[in-house]
Computed example of a mutant assay.
Amino acid sequence: MNTLEIDLERLEPVSVRCDASYLHVTLGDGVIITTPLWWYPRLLAATPEDLAQVELSPFGIHWPTIDEDLSITGLIEGRKAPGATPPAEAAE
C-alpha cells in the first residue's frame, strides 16, 4: 500500500502580510503563496490595524477583529471566499 507522507511543518504558515492588492503567506518550507486580496472581501475591506491582528495556527490563519479564517489547504487549492468579485466586475 502506498501512503502519502506530508511534512505538516512545511505547510505551517510562519508569516502573513497584506499589501494593497495581495495576500502573501510564507510557509515553513519557505514557499510563499500569493493570492489576490479581492478573493477575500473581508480582508480587502479591513483596516491596516485589523490586518495586523493575525493569528497563525498549524493549518491556517485567523483575523479575530474581522472574523476571517483561511486554511492553508484552501490557499493552495485557490479557493476564493463565496461572493468574491473581481474588481473589474464589481465596478460594473
Results as ranks from 00 to 15, higher is better:
1 M>W: 08
3 T>E: 09
5 E>W: 10
5 E>G: 11
5 E>P: 04
8 L>A: 03
9 E>F: 00
10 R>N: 14
10 R>I: 00
10 R>S: 13
10 R>D: 14
11 L>D: 06
11 L>E: 02
12 E>C: 10
14 V>Y: 00
14 V>W: 00
14 V>A: 00
15 S>A: 14
16 V>T: 08
17 R>T: 14
17 R>Q: 15
17 R>A: 10
18 C>L: 13
18 C>V: 12
18 C>Q: 08
19 D>P: 05
19 D>K: 01
19 D>E: 07
20 A>R: 09
20 A>W: 00
20 A>T: 13
21 S>Y: 08
21 S>N: 14
21 S>L: 07
22 Y>S: 12
22 Y>W: 10
23 L>Y: 12
24 H>L: 12
25 V>N: 03
25 V>Y: 09
26 T>K: 10
26 T>M: 12
27 L>E: 07
27 L>R: 08
27 L>F: 03
28 G>W: 04
28 G>S: 08
28 G>V: 03
29 D>H: 13
31 V>H: 11
32 I>K: 11
32 I>V: 15
33 I>Y: 05
38 W>I: 01
38 W>Y: 10
39 W>R: 00
42 R>H: 11
44 L>V: 05
47 T>V: 01
47 T>H: 00
47 T>M: 00
49 E>H: 00
52 A>G: 07
54 V>T: 14
54 V>R: 10
55 E>K: 15
56 L>T: 01
56 L>D: 10
56 L>I: 01
58 P>E: 08
58 P>W: 09
58 P>Q: 11
59 F>L: 10
60 G>K: 09
60 G>L: 05
60 G>R: 06
60 G>C: 12
61 I>C: 11
61 I>F: 13
61 I>V: 15
63 W>V: 07
64 P>E: 03
64 P>N: 08
65 T>W: 06
65 T>E: 05
66 I>W: 12
66 I>F: 11
67 D>T: 07
68 E>S: 02
68 E>D: 01
69 D>Y: 15
69 D>W: 11
69 D>S: 15
70 L>S: 03
73 T>A: 15
73 T>P: 03
73 T>Q: 13
74 G>Y: 14
74 G>K: 14
74 G>L: 12
77 E>V: 06
78 G>N: 00
78 G>Y: 09
78 G>W: 02
79 R>N: 09
79 R>Y: 13
79 R>K: 14
80 K>M: 15
80 K>N: 13
80 K>G: 06
81 A>I: 01
82 P>M: 07
83 G>I: 10
85 T>H: 01
85 T>G: 02
85 T>W: 02
86 P>Q: 04
86 P>L: 02
87 P>G: 07
88 A>F: 05
88 A>C: 00
90 A>R: 11
90 A>T: 04
91 A>R: 15
91 A>L: 15
92 E>A: 09
92 E>Y: 07
